Amino acid sequence: MSFPPIREELRGIEPYGAPQLSLEQAPVQLNVNENPYGPSAAAAADIATAVARAAMTLNRYPDREFTELREGLAAYLNSSGGSGITPEMVWAANGSNEVMLQILQAFGGPGRTALSFAPTYSMYPEYARDAMTDWVVGHRAEDFSLDLDAARDLVHRTRPSVVLLPSPNNPTGTALPPEAVSMLCDAAGDGIVVVDEAYGEFRRSGTPSALELLPRHRNLVVSRTMSKAFALAGARLGYLATDPAICDAIRVVRLPYHLSAVTQATALAALRHAPELLGRVDDLRGERDRTVAWLREQGLEVADSDANFVLFGRFAHRHAVWQGLLGHGVLIRETGPDGWLRVSVGTAEEMTAFKSALTIVMNTEPMRDNT
């Protein structure tokens, strides 16, 4: 055995992470789907005051059930696509990453299977690996939608204990229709179906939230985050709504006092300012839709997006395009199927810089895949 004695399946693996460059290296950073508009001065001041109050209690452990925060999150979800959601139906952790890992720890494990449909969020197989859960991946159609019959058949064949469904999907931005979610909840039997709505607030008008389906499916989990629409990526707060029995099961695997007093205070202050923090969502939706239209005018393929990012292609040499954009100070993400790139939606000025750089890069040499 070589040192250190890491699990063999982890040996040699690089840790997950998108490229992080300084603003000097890349003045326009559009690669990790952040909200480009930070908290308002009023929200920041309220957060600072709340954290200062929490700081006076740091000699004591925080409320391990984060009761007040669960009440606030339930109230917010009931105004954002849900109804009848109670605090007992809400769970939260340090980012939706920890929420997902806790789900796999509680419902996955040796001899159990987690399932998703590619292209999908690249961290899902890592959650499964870390929880020693078998990973099965189906595939989406050419337009990144789900073939419902094929998806149902795969669920019936593999009998997963957890099905992971990002909607809007990352990296494609496409949303799942309610009938797809209901079908998979029925097909999964007693398995857990997680609809990851990290980008749910950015969905287009008329696109429903899976929160509406909670009364019909006891095995449905709908997760959200405060990192995106709430512009609190640095605060690390993810949460979910589901049947109280599922929340109780997750409580078994959570670490003691996993949400610090500072995190709870920050999130509660943000919820008090939800209207203003979410006030730029419409602006970002509009910028996204203009970006989709512009990319299509350039003759590129673009996935329909209900998120705050856009997947576009196809390029014969996508890394060369990515590198060319970086040479002009614009950092986007090289992810998704071969030939595709993903750009986060930034401010109007940032998107102008992206368009100008992409125009130059595409005219430098033949980059587009015309097959």
Rank of each mutant, 00 (worst) to 15 (best):
D63Y: 04
R64F: 07
E65T: 02
F66M: 13
T67D: 15
E68A: 14
E68H: 09
L69S: 03
L69N: 04
E71Q: 14
L73V: 00
A74W: 07
A74V: 12
A75P: 01
Y76K: 00
L77A: 08
N78D: 10
S79K: 09
G81R: 01
G82L: 07
G82D: 03
S83W: 06
G84K: 05
P87Q: 13
E88Y: 03
M89C: 11
V90W: 10
A92N: 04
G95A: 07
G95E: 06
S96H: 12
N97T: 15
E98M: 15
L104F: 14
Q105T: 04
Q105P: 07
G108D: 11
G108L: 07
G108I: 05
G109E: 12
G109T: 09
G109S: 10
G109N: 10
P110V: 14
R112W: 08
R112Y: 09
A114Q: 11
L115D: 07
L115H: 06
L115W: 08
S116G: 05
F117P: 02
P119W: 00
T120K: 06
Y121H: 11
S122K: 00
M123A: 11
Y124K: 00
P125I: 03
Y127E: 04
R129E: 06
R129P: 01
D130Q: 14
D130Y: 09
M132Y: 11
T133I: 00
W135A: 03
W135M: 08
W135I: 01
V136P: 05
V137I: 08
V137L: 13
G138D: 05
G138V: 03
H139R: 15
R140G: 07
R140E: 07
A141Y: 02
D143E: 11
F144H: 12
F144L: 04
F144G: 03
F144K: 05
S145A: 09
L146P: 01
L146Q: 01
D147C: 02
D149N: 12
D149F: 08
A150H: 05
A150S: 09
A150I: 00
R152E: 15
D153T: 13
V155M: 12
H156G: 13
H156V: 00
H156F: 14
H156M: 14
R157I: 14
T158F: 11
T158C: 12
P160N: 09
P160F: 05
P160W: 06
S161D: 13
S161C: 08
V162W: 13
V162Y: 13
V163T: 06
L164V: 05
P166G: 02
P168V: 02
P168R: 02
P168K: 01
N169H: 00
N169P: 00
T172V: 08
T172E: 02
G173V: 02
A175S: 13
A175N: 10
L176M: 07
P177Q: 08
P178I: 08
P178Y: 05
E179C: 12
V181L: 04
M183C: 15
L184C: 11
L184H: 10
L184R: 10
D186A: 15
D186S: 15
A187I: 09
A187Y: 09
G191L: 04
I192A: 01
I192H: 01
I192L: 08
V193P: 07
V193T: 08
A198D: 10
A198N: 11
Y199E: 14
Y199W: 15
G200E: 10
G200S: 10
F202R: 08
F202W: 10
R203Y: 06
R204C: 04
R204H: 08
